[in-house]
Amino acid sequence: MVLDAGTLLRILLWGLVSGSVYMLLATGITLIFGVMKVVNFAHGELMMTGAFVTFILSHAFGLNPYVGVFVSMAAVGVLGIVIERVGFRRLRGTAKINEIFFSIALILILQNALARIFVPRFREYVQIKTPYATEVLDLGLITLRYDFVILLVLAWATLLGLWVVLYRTGLGRDVRGTSQNRTAAMLMGIRVERVDMLTFGIGAALGALAGSLYGIINPFGPYAGTLPAIKAFAVIILGGLGSVRGAVVGGLLYGIVESVATFFLGGSWRDAIAFVLLIVVLLTRPQGLFRGGA
């Protein structure tokens, strides 16, 4: 086998791209956890809902997906707010396991509702078609689809935007405060219910973005979100529950590790690699790589 520069570059590139998707997912989940101390297992379904909305906007209304993405983020953000209000808020104070139970019920509802609309009309998979779907950038060593470039730009721009919100706005300060110490935040007059709601909305919107970007480069269906979300969970545990920095670094790193591992070990290990990594790390550092906290 010729392990040349082109091949290596490609492997890293796929890792970077899928890592960016994981990064967005993980950040959304970890934000929600940091503020609400809730693990939302249905995040994969929010991801797919976002992908599907972007797809419909593009397929039925001809909207450029890169514009549709923002509409999708808003829509799923609102959905997230509703879910928090109607579900998780009620469960605050009851046993932790109830929240897990509720998110499992959410998986059943969202996944099958999506499938119900999706399957009869679109069968197994669809893919969001962009105007640049077949255009490539020739970089000498390799060729790169425009979509990949846009994906990376959008993902990182969003993260930058998130950083700005978290560190330069009042809301962001409230989020960080609630995440660090909820009681203290309440004492300081922060309306934690509002923070909960908005954080869940933001987390959901990030998931929608992840889903839409994923759906542009991969065929997807109603069930495609479960596995990436679970891997994202493994990532945030590695990165430290509640740590955005951990989610970003962890997500990216994991994408690359997954790509490299698949290359050398074969397709069968792709999905299990996340957990091998998780176990190895947790055996040595039970609290994860980074401390918690945004």
Binding site: F101, I104, A105
Partner: peptide
């Protein structure tokens, strides 16, 4: 979906 709703 119904089961999910019921459980929720």
């Amino acid at each position: 979906i119904l089961i999910g709703l019921m459980l929720a």
